[in-house]
Design a protein around this nucleic acid. Structure first.
Length: 568
DNA sequence: CCTAAAATAT
DNA sequence: GATATTTTAG
């Protein structure tokens, strides 16, 4: 049970009765702290050993609203086990240690605050705010009601960057992936300004603003004090360190594009959903990024509680994850990508340029590079080398031009044909379109293979795209499976609604006119190979035994084990 | 900065 | 288990 806004709403004399887990090895200070807290009508559960505290939390996390953990350097080393493991309870670290590195690490590990011992009543008084803060962030009412569109969000992230320079506070570069993280960190600063987080005079943020030295130079802490050395800090796994940036990253209902599998993606996705709604209305069709998250927007269960249940892998909380938000390569986005790629031509189509041309907010070069990689692989798969070669032998010069470029040919843009926006893309199946449907053949309007029309290159069949990534040719399939017949045009063959193709046929339904010929073939081949026992798709004639045998013979296979002959 | 390959997430 | 995307490494 995570603490939510609802809980807060019914809590009469909040924060009285706040349940605090206190873990301090120093009995004296523990007692002192406990006393102070109890004076404020907090309920304190005190532990001396980290292990005990940990066990208590892991057993019954809902028992505690907030944790106060003392960090002691033993032989110059601190244990961060608690911070590492406990993710769903706001944890305040208290310590005598005060070197920035240690503080940093704690924050990186998700601590909501770092308090210098000895603790004063003053420092402890406002710790309840962390609980509230968490409740707000738990996806309750406040958040769901007024989400900003993601575009704005992202935009704000970028604008903020300029503020950053004024801070004079540099995060060691090893902390961040240089592309965007700075912006994200900054967003945090800005957000903080808007809606101040619980803080005490010694909050890190304050230090950042005032400190003139940069982080690396900040080694003024004595060796004793500084439990963690720079080296160790720098060796912190990025995944952990990068979490720094989303500590307290959301305030109020404003969202910042940062990493978190839990809350933020949900928010972002909602925002994205809202935006796409808006897009539907306006025909302006700006491409925007859609971030994927683990959880489904449609479901309105945005409670942290629910979220955390769904993701038991990490010990939950707002600070669970590290991965960058996934980008949903929607058909629209992909279309932009392809367009940019086309425009650049094969030589120039590199991530940075594509990115530039695409001009999509928030998209990174990495994203593009990755997509490009996939795109190329896709091509490669569709036009395997060997087939490629064969193909060349059997085609006229017109086509050679395309195919000689081995794998990743970027055909020239075909100006003779204007692709209707509605049909031209997506070139790939989108996640939501799901699987190959063999019956695509019926609708695809693919030309009968063998005699390609002379104007092959310029003629575009209704549902074939002048795909940027290769000629819409179907070489190898023809080769290995023999001829197939597709009604050259006209309405799809329905066969009186009867499903001649059995199981394969059932997969019909998606809109295959979104696919290129290649893709259709690719899918069919895959499907057929996956379930060879099913009948071939309508119009696809199985190769004759003779053909197969001679083919195998040509490949040096002269004997066929009985099993392989069962169909003959 | 680019690409390929490995790691992860879905 | 396959696929999509991110991260890492060269």
């Amino acid at each position: 049970m995570s603490f939510s806004c609802d809980d807060l709403a019914v809590w009469k004399d909040f924060p009285k009765g706040l349940r605090i887990l206190l873990c301090d090895e120093d009995r004296e200070s523990a007692a002192d702290t406990k006393m102070k807290l109890e004076a404020m009508d907090y309920t304190v559960y005190s532990y001396c050993r980290e292990e005990d505290a940990l066990e208590a939390v892991l057993t019954k996390a809902e028992n505690y609203h907030i944790a106060i953990l003392e960090l002691t350097a033993i032989n110059g080393h601190c244990s961060f086990k608690f911070l590492e493991m406990v993710k769903d309870i706001p944890t305040i670290v208290i310590s005598k240690v005060h070197c920035l590195n240690t503080v940093m690490k704690c924050i990186a590990l998700g601590a909501v605050e770092f308090l210098q011992k000895p603790l004063s009543e003053e420092k402890l008084r406002n710790i309840w705010q962390h609980v509230v803060h968490k409740a707000f962030n738990a996806g309750g009412n406040a958040i769901s009601t007024s989400l900003k569109p993601i575009k704005e969000t992202v935009a704000s992230v970028f604008q903020i960057q300029s503020d950053f320079n004024e801070l004079n506070f540099e995060i060691p570069s090893q902390f961040f992936d240089m592309e965007q993280e700075h912006e994200e960190l900054n967003a945090k600063e800005k957000e903080n300004d808007k809606f101040s987080a619980p803080s005490t005079p010694q909050l890190i943020k304050g230090e950042r603003l005032n400190e003139d030295e940069n982080f690396q130079d900040r080694t003024d802490c004595s060796e004793k004090d500084c439990a963690i050395e720079d080296k160790e800090l720098s060796e912190l796994p990025k995944c952990i360190v990068s979490e720094t940036k989303f500590v307290d990253n959301t305030y109020n209902n404003i969202t910042v594009a940062v990493n978190s599998d839990e809350i933020l993606p949900l928010i972002l996705e909602k925002a994205a959903a809202e935006e796409s709604k808006a897009d539907d209305c306006s025909s302006g069709h700006e491409v925007s990024l859609h971030f994927l998250s683990t959880d489904n927007v449609e479901k309105e269960d945005s409670d942290l509680e629910n979220l955390t249940k769904k993701n038991p892998s990490n010990l939950n909380g707002i600070r669970g994850s590290r991965r960058r938000m996934k980008i949903d390569w929607t058909p629209e986005l992909h279309r932009k990508f392809v367009k940019a790629t086309e425009q650049l031509g094969i030589d120039q189509a590199i991530p940075s340029k594509i990115l530039e041309l695409m001009n999509v907010e928030g998209l990174t070069r990495h994203n593009v590079a990755s997509h490009l990689q996939k795109f190329r692989m896709h091509k490669r798969h569709i036009l395997p080398k060997e087939e490629d070669r064969r193909w060349q032998l059997h085609t006229d010069s017109l086509q050679k031009g395309y195919l000689q470029k081995p794998i990743m040919a970027f055909p020239t843009y075909n100006s003779n044909y204007i692709i209707p926006p509605s049909q031209a893309y997506p070139i790939w199946p989108h996640q939501t379109y799901h699987l190959p449907n063999v019956q695509m053949w019926r609708h695809s309007g693919l030309p009968t293979w063998h005699p390609p029309p002379e104007n092959w290159q310029t003629k575009v069949y209704p549902e074939i795209h002048a795909d940027a990534w290769g000629c819409p040719v179907l070489p190898h399939y023809n080769y290995s499976y023999g001829q197939y017949y597709i009604p050259p045009q006209g309405p799809p063959v329905r066969n009186n609604g009867q499903d001649v193709t059995g199981d394969r046929g059932r997969m019909l339904k998606s809109s295959y006119d979104h696919f290129t010929a290649e893709e259709v073939i690719d899918k069919v081949v895959k499907e057929v190979m996956r379930k060879p026992w099913l009948p071939l798709p309508l119009g696809l004639k199985p190769p004759s035994t003779e053909k197969i045998l001679s083919e195998l013979h040509g490949k040096g296979i002269h004997t066929i084990p009985p099993l392989h002959r069962r169909h003959s």
